[in-house]
């Protein structure tokens, strides 16, 4: 399998990554090499093998729905790039 410029642009867009045009050929080459390595898996017989998502096959632990944390908005927003009146600011989304 070989990935080209369009593939890299599409993947970068999905990943919300701005990449320089000049770097695209390198990414295409590296991703092609890496997926070449991964390609080995396709020849493995995995019929009836259940996928392993987690090493311990644990189930999600539940807890009572009780308040355990206090409001720390000010502390958490102190490290934010831009806030106003307790909300995070981003460029306008809806006209």
């Amino acid at each position: 399998m070989s990935l080209d410029k369009t593939d890299v642009e599409k993947i970068a867009h999905l990943a919300r990554l701005a990449i320089d045009d000049a770097d695209i050929p390198n990414y295409a080459r590296d991703l092609t090499t890496i997926f070449g390595l991964v390609e080995q898996l396709s020849s493995v017989d995995t019929d009836n093998i259940s996928p392993m998502a987690h090493p311990l096959d644990a189930v999600q632990r539940l807890r009572p729905d009780q308040v355990s944390e206090t409001d720390q908005r000010e502390q958490f927003q102190a490290i934010a790039p831009k806030t106003e009146a307790g909300v995070y600011l981003v460029p306008q989304v809806i006209e």
Partner: peptide, 25 residues
């Protein structure tokens, strides 16, 4: 980018699911 591609529509079974099965082996 590798991860995004492996999880993207149309490729999930071929890569991620397959890898999870190999992980079991």
């Amino acid at each position: 980018m590798i991860g995004t591609y492996a999880l993207s529509a149309g490729y999930y079974d071929a890569y991620y699911l397959k890898a999870q099965q190999c992980r079991r082996l």
